[in-house]
């Protein structure tokens, strides 16, 4: 199934912050060949950057993706609404869709939690940057002791979130909340999103609160969380602890910061990296699966 040069043909649809950052990550990765950058705004910076790098770029959106040759995987970084239109068309064309919008058409995947689940699916959802940063922690607690309630607060710099995310803040909050329950294993989840416009921009920070039983083993919870942080760091090296996990009344609290690789936006935009690094990890696995199939 792989292209003649052994590389998987890839297209990105959505030329905003996420899509553009992803383009640089695809470029660095020997498994992929960037076939097309598609957007809908001919003036977008993402499209002109793609051309500068020598890639095909089109403002015809999904039509240009379907017309392009050799595209096996599409990263969709548009909006929830747009992805709902794209999903059936990509499926019909036999193209694997890795969905970075909160549309949640296909199963949700967080690589450090349920990587295997994406293997058979032709549409995989990455939920949100907040979910990618916090679901692993909730999962790390729930694999040790029941989590009655998990709450996360993701604070991102104003500059790192573009118009798509802003117009999807409802879906963003809602799907992140669902993921804390479905993937994180919490009985009930709650997600809060805070946008901070400070200049210089703040790094993405995430706080996780997990309400647990009084007799839960604090040491076991702590070491499970620390092991998980190492796991996530394997694909997002900028994922670091700022407040060590500690018990505070009926819950555990932990603070995390994510700095990015600085591929497109500077390193404060860890929120781009955490979801894009997950997208790349899933695409790599999908590619490997296809090779062996």
């Amino acid at each position: 199934m792989s292209a003649h040069n052994g590389r998987i043909g890839v297209a990105i649809i959505g030329s905003g912050n996420i899509g553009t950052d992803l383009m640089y990550k695809v470029r660095k990765n020997p498994n992929f060949e960037m076939k097309l950058m598609a957007g809908i705004d001919p003036e977008s910076e993402g499209l002109s950057r793609a051309r500068e790098l020598g890639y095909e770029a089109s403002s015809d959106g999904i039509e240009s993706v379907l017309a392009a040759e050799g595209v096996q995987i599409v990263f969709d970084a548009t909006s929830a609404k747009a992805h709902q239109h794209h999903a059936p068309r990509l499926a019909q064309a036999g193209i694997m869709a890795i969905d970075l919008t909160p549309a949640k058409v296909g199963p949700s995947v967080v690589p450090s939690v349920n990587m295997g689940r994406g293997q058979q699916a032709t549409n995989v959802n990455l939920i949100s940057c907040a979910a990618q940063a916090t679901v692993p922690i909730v999962y790390a607690v729930s694999r040790v002791t029941p989590v009655k309630y998990a709450e996360i607060v993701a604070t991102v710099s104003s500059r790192s979130i573009g118009p798509g995310t802003r117009q999807n803040i409802e879906e963003f909050t809602h799907t992140t909340q669902k993921a804390l329950e479905e993937l994180g294993g919490a009985t009930r989840g709650k997600a809060l999103v805070v946008i901070n416009p400070a200049d210089p921009p703040i790094k993405m920070r995430n706080t996780v609160y997990a309400v647990i039983d009084d007799d839960a083993d604090d040491e076991a919870i702590k070491s499970s969380i620390l092991a998980m942080v190492e796991e996530v760091r394997r694909y997002v090296p900028g994922y670091i602890i700022t407040v060590e996990p500690f018990r505070r009344g009926d819950h555990f609290m932990i603070g995390l910061e994510v700095s990015g690789a600085g591929d497109y936006l500077p390193s404060y935009a860890g929120n781009l990296d955490i979801i894009n690094a997950a997208a790349i990890a899933i695409a790599e696995q999908h590619a490997a699966h296809r090779e062996t199939a």
């Binding site: 607060v153 604070t155 901070n196």
Partner: peptide
Amino acid sequence: ERKVVAAQEDVVIEEAK
């Protein structure tokens, strides 16, 4: 100095620590 906005109660704890 950190220019916190509303709803950053976690930063209050982080800075206090």
